[in-house]
Design a protein around this nucleic acid. Sequence first.
DNA 1: CAAACATACTAAAACGTTTTAGTAAAAAAA
DNA 2: TTTTTTTACTAAAACGTTTTAGTATGTTTG
Lengths: 344, 344
Amino acid sequence: MKKKPVSIRNIAEELKISVTTVSFVLNGKAKEKHISKELTKKVLDYAKLINYRPNQVAQSLRTGKSKLLVFMVEDISNNFFSQLARIFEDIAYEKGYKVIFCSNENDDDKANELITLFSFRQVDGFIIVPSPGIRDTIENLVKDNIPVILLDRFYEGLDCNSVVIDNEQASFDATQHLIDNKFKNICFISTASDQSQMYGRLHGYEKAVEVNGLEPHILQIPFNEIIKGKGKEYIKKFFEQNKDLDAVFFSTNYLAQSGLEVLKETNQNLIKDLGLIAFDDNDMFKIYDPTITSVAQPLVEISTKLMEVMLPLLKKKDISETTHQKIVLKTELIIRESSLVKQK
Amino acid sequence: MKKKPVSIRNIAEELKISVTTVSFVLNGKAKEKHISKELTKKVLDYAKLINYRPNQVAQSLRTGKSKLLVFMVEDISNNFFSQLARIFEDIAYEKGYKVIFCSNENDDDKANELITLFSFRQVDGFIIVPSPGIRDTIENLVKDNIPVILLDRFYEGLDCNSVVIDNEQASFDATQHLIDNKFKNICFISTASDQSQMYGRLHGYEKAVEVNGLEPHILQIPFNEIIKGKGKEYIKKFFEQNKDLDAVFFSTNYLAQSGLEVLKETNQNLIKDLGLIAFDDNDMFKIYDPTITSVAQPLVEISTKLMEVMLPLLKKKDISETTHQKIVLKTELIIRESSLVKQK
DNA sequence: CAAACATACTAAAACGTTTTAGTAAAAAAA
DNA sequence: TTTTTTTACTAAAACGTTTTAGTATGTTTG
């Protein structure tokens, strides 16, 4: 049978002292509470001997702290998010926190449901890649002084901690890079979304195109069509209707995926002739033929910043007075074959 | 300030009834405990009105159940595991369980540490992709009647639930497929590991080669060298020393990754001339040029089986009498261009 | 030499549930 | 009518901690 783990009470009884004393010692409050050196040592030694581990559930109930963080992303199977998760996991464990990952599919209902699930007090803090319409939910969390950090995207005008990248600059630089490499008809394939990250990417592209006196060519696929797996159809039709394109900038990695599939199916050679850049790097990009240029997000830096912002919030009793931080990180344009001048 | 969530006590006081009654009603034991229909309805209605959510920490403390599962994989950022995680997540949530994902890096110390961390009673069940040397730890979990399922690999002779694939058959079929397509000098690139999954894959390959009267060509890279990022060097040297190879079978997706990198760097054309198969599918394989044949694991089926095996264990009071299940699932060989007869 | 303080320790409440072991009244059986 | 059973509900303990508000000494201090 499952043997019962030892409790503080067992220790107290064995040593014939009070539970209180044991608790004080175990929590490092021996000096502060005037527990003698000898007794302190005795408790510590015995606890070690029997391999005592506090029951974290009981601790949580009493203290209201669970040492659990929720890391809610759009889709944990998406390479970008899973890599981020992997790095954040390590950082969190180091600080004594466990992480519950979950995917909201960029769906408001799912996101709301998940947040309610880990509701109020169950969890010490939230890191959230927010879906478009949960602004109110986030605002409520903030109002209730629950530590929250928005990741990847944020709500304009909502005062909340966030860690994001400079999407507009990243997108501008990538587009400019294509232009510098003699591409003239660059299209931007994206989702029809007004979430901040997509907005930034679109505007960076538009600005670069405009500054250089070129024409924009934009495809914005409705999100629910992508969900339904219709992304490829949209892209295919778009390519058919815009035969004069000489470069493509994909605003997300799954669009790049779909786009490459379409190109592969319709005209293999096109992949080599077109200028190509994808947002978010993928390990496969460096072994593709041609190797594919990408906008890489600083994964380690993002995770580190998340914890840097989160930790003080977890420590404080009352975070209502803390000012919210908005961290904006730089991306890196990894230049590979696909975006360089094509020699005909 | 953070407002206190409503408790059962609040409901009891408001309705001027006992906490017990409220608890019974809320747990659906109204009939069983002879609570009148009217009162039951009153409680339910009021609970809904004030949006009551039970404090799960208190529930856990009392019941010893946390409604948490640990899903420990080798590396959550690995595509195969993150996809599995994504699917399992949904299934678990549906059943009211939350999932803590963690990565053990196939390292014994890390794995042991994590298991201890979620130690005894903190968590309701474990799904573990075990590192080579934690057999004893697993055995202890089993002895303590803690629900455990081994995933992807198992220990020969250890009686424990497991969900794995038929690696040997998968590997045999893949190799036979290459042979059927006229490849004669097929090499097998793998890790120097005697974990069950690798053992199976190696033997499947060896058997197929032998049955067909061909010579085996095997590269086994020590695991710690792979960790150090030296995998590519090993593969490169191997290719240099075996110039007459006409096909390569990679035993894992990260080896395929490395192998393709090597081929890309040394001789782009080789990729088209060699027969190629990779274990574990990757979204990129179908847009590579050539598209790459792979052995795909049945992700949905694996996740479903995991939950199917896990749920009864979670329900039972005493699982010491339950017999352990060993589920072996079939893989699918996804045949693409890279493994078909090459026309010169 | 009393008052103040420091030291060493502890009893008991509290966190929010579930569950055991009841009670009291009404209904059914004898 | 008395006994038994059923119905409707509840008091209080328990889960394992943390923490408040102590007590009982010994030690300074004025």
